[in-house]
C-alpha cells in the first residue's frame, strides 16, 4: 500500500499535471522562448555578417585583411550555421506559441 501511495505522490508531483511537472513545463516554455529568440537573433546577425563579408559592405573584407584567406569558405560556413540556427530557433518559438 505504502509504495503505491508513494508512487501516486511522486506522479502527482512530477507528472504532466503535477505541481513540479507543471513548474518544469513552465520553465521549459520560458527557456524555449528565450533560447529560441536568442538563436533566431544570432542567426539573423550571422546572415547579415555573411552578406557584409560576401558583398564587402562597409569594407569588411578590408578590415579583416590577412585574417580571411578564403572568403567563400567562411561565407558558406556562416550560411550553413545560420540556416540551422534559424530553423532551430523558430521551432522553439513556434513551440512556445503553440503551448500558450
Amino acid at each position: 500500500m505504502a509504495p503505491a501511495f508513494l508512487l501516486l505522490n511522486v506522479y502527482l508531483l512530477l507528472g504532466e499535471k503535477g505541481l513540479i511537472g507543471v513548474w518544469l513545463m513552465n520553465i521549459r516554455g520560458t527557456l524555449a522562448i528565450i533560447v529560441g529568440l536568442m538563436q533566431s537573433v544570432t542567426a539573423a546577425l550571422v546572415f547579415i555578417f555573411a552578406c557584409c563579408l560576401y558583398f564587402n559592405f562597409f569594407g569588411v573584407q578590408g578590415q579583416l585583411n590577412g585574417a580571411i584567406e578564403s572568403c567563400h569558405f567562411h561565407v558558406l560556413v556562416l550560411l550553413v550555421f545560420g540556416f540551422f540556427s534559424i530553423i532551430s530557433g523558430l521551432f522553439l518559438v513556434y513551440e512556445w506559441l503553440e503551448s500558450r
Binding site: 533560447v35 529560441g36 532551430s88 521551432f91 522553439l92
Partner: peptide, 10 residues
Amino acid sequence: AISIIAGILN
C-alpha cells in the same frame, strides 16, 4: 552554449 541548450530543447 545557446546551440547546445536549443538542441536539447528541440
